[in-house]
């Protein structure tokens, strides 16, 4: 989307909110862990453990799943409380398509907005026009076409959806493998087959062509949804994730501080089983979890978003 990037020669004035500045922020989070928190105290634990950012939300996905009801953007007081407690970046979730929640989050000074399927969607056709914002957005995807549609709308970072609030990593695995497989397939196609590939992916041709040429998404790709252990995080990194979101997995476990620090270490040393073994010892209870197969399809969060 180079046409969206302000030209460096047209003016000397500093430019905020450019695609490069938005995507660049996600580059700085790579190799790191972003943790869901619902209170300033949890945010402090996450920062102490070495999180690269925290995600402020009203309820972690496991509680949203258990309690039901409509799930929305968090209370601004709670987000302010977290912003004032930690010095690392603070992200927050807006409902899919709820551009006013996103405007509020930008006004509060959050560093990244997650247009998230974990909250109840506000629009069943349109996602937020993310180009219209200075704050960058991360969006979930289950496959390459979905990722490219979000990037076309202005997303500056993509994460796998997985199935949030389950502690079951299987869907995150499926989504990460799928996205990477579809990227590999594009790189092997002759140029004259990319038009049909774009049609099949339901994604813009220009982005399809870019992915085919570079072999990667034009933005950073993280994993999310069901990661509960250091080994889960390391597996997702080995499958090609550039960093990890952990939602319910930390604060629904027996010893959040220790588990959080262990997942941070396992993410950096994702290819070193000795380190992963060492940090996995004595962590206490992992979150109990739900098998994704036991959740009826209409209740699966990954189905939200289009």
């Amino acid at each position: 989307m180079s046409e969206q990037t302000p030209s460096s020669t047209s003016s000397n004035a500093p430019v905020t909110g450019s695609a490069r500045v938005k995507r660049g922020m996600a580059e700085m989070l790579k190799g790191g862990v972003i943790m869901d928190v619902v209170t300033p105290e949890q945010a402090k634990i996450a920062e102490d453990a070495g999180a690269v950012a925290v995600m402020a939300l009203e309820r972690v996905p496991a509680d949203i799943r258990a309690q039901g009801g409509v799930s929305r953007m968090s209370d601004p007081d709670m987000i302010d409380g977290i912003i004032n407690t930690v010095s690392i970046p603070v992200m927050a979730k807006a409902r899919i398509g709820h551009f006013v929640e996103a405007q509020v989050l930008q006004s509060l000074g959050v560093d990244y907005v997650d247009e998230s399927e974990v909250l109840t969607p506000a629009d069943f056709e349109n996602h937020i026009d993310k180009w219209a914002f200075t704050v960058p957005f991360v969006c979930g995807a289950t496959n390459l076409g979905e990722a490219l549609r979000r990037i076309n709308e202005g997303a500056a970072m993509i994460r796998s959806k997985g199935e949030a609030g389950t502690g079951d990593v299987s869907n995150a695995t499926t989504h990460m493998r799928k996205i990477r497989q579809e990227i590999r397939r594009l790189t092997s196609l002759p140029e004259d087959e990319l038009y049909v590939a774009a049609k099949e992916l339901q994604a813009p041709y220009e982005l399809v062509k870019e992915v085919a040429a570079t072999g990667k998404l034009p933005v950073v790709l993280f994993t999310a949804g069901g990661i509960a252990t250091p080994a889960d995080a390391a597996m997702m990194m080995q499958l090609g994730a550039e960093g990890v979101f952990v939602g319910s997995g930390i604060f629904k476990s027996g010893n959040p501080a220790q588990r959080a620090a262990a997942i941070v270490k396992a993410t950096t040393f994702y290819d070193d089983p000795d380190v992963i073994a060492k940090v996995s010892r004595g962590l206490g209870e992992a979150m109990v979890g739900i098998n994704v197969d036991d959740i009826p399809v209409p209740h699966r969060l990954a189905e939200r978003g289009w």
Partner: peptide
């Protein structure tokens, strides 16, 4: 914060 991040000469 991130909304103040910028590019310039």
């Amino acid at each position: 914060r991130q909304v103040d991040s910028f590019e310039g000469p």
